[in-house]
């Protein structure tokens, strides 16, 4: 079944690594919904979060191809049930007169923060999972969104479950190389 997989990819922080990952996904026709990249807990390593859409076996193939990139240290296909995901959005919302207090009220409901204000607009930041952000934006649209920027998804597994080590990949997950 086609659905979104969240891949957490630990990579060596080398020049061009993002290019390598994106180029690989493009040339093998894997669909990326979103990609984010930043430092990880380990010095010299970055962590990317890729949301990839496809059949399970396609995503498995994507995982194996990713491992072939020299800079890729670990790929974790985070199962939905086990992963906590977050996105951030910044919006500039029309907020004059009476609607101003309504916008502020709603922002509070969503745990969003006001970053800046002009006489006619409010700039608001919200974080949450995809559905919370979608719902927040639906509400803001009522007042008129002047400008919006949305980060890609970042994700973290609660446990280490779902991690596909190199050894698993090498035997196609049938038996881990360790045993």
């Amino acid at each position: 079944m086609q659905h979104a997989h969240t891949l957490s990819v630990l990579v060596e922080d080398q020049p061009g690594v993002l290019n390598r990952v994106v180029s690989l996904m493009r040339r093998r026709s894997f669909n990326i919904d979103s990609i984010t990249v930043g430092h990880s807990e380990q010095p010299g390593m970055s962590r990317m979060t890729l949301v990839v859409r496809g059949e399970d076996n396609e995503v498995e193939q994507a995982t194996k191809q990713l491992y072939k990139l020299l800079e890729v240290v670990k790929v974790t296909d985070l199962p939905e049930a086990d992963a906590i995901t977050r996105e951030m959005v910044m919006v500039k919302v029309a907020a004059k007169g009476q609607s101003r207090s309504e916008v502020l009220q709603l922002a509070q409901v969503y745990g969003a923060r006001v970053l800046d204000a002009t006489p006619t607009t409010l700039m608001i930041e919200a974080t949450g999972d995809e559905h919370q952000i979608d719902s927040f934006l639906t509400m803001m649209r009522v007042f008129g969104i002047r400008e919006m920027v949305r980060s890609g998804k970042i994700a973290m597994g609660r446990s280490s479950a779902g991690t596909r080590s190199r050894a698993d990949v090498s035997t196609n997950g049938v038996y881990a190389a360790a045993d």
Binding site: E12, L70, V72, V73, R166, S170, T171, V174, Y175, A177
Partner: peptide, 18 residues
Amino acid sequence: GRKSYQPTITPNIRQVRL
């Protein structure tokens, strides 16, 4: 050599038996 580059040379014996 690099930590991230570890080609599998020796197959898993259980796969070989299968």
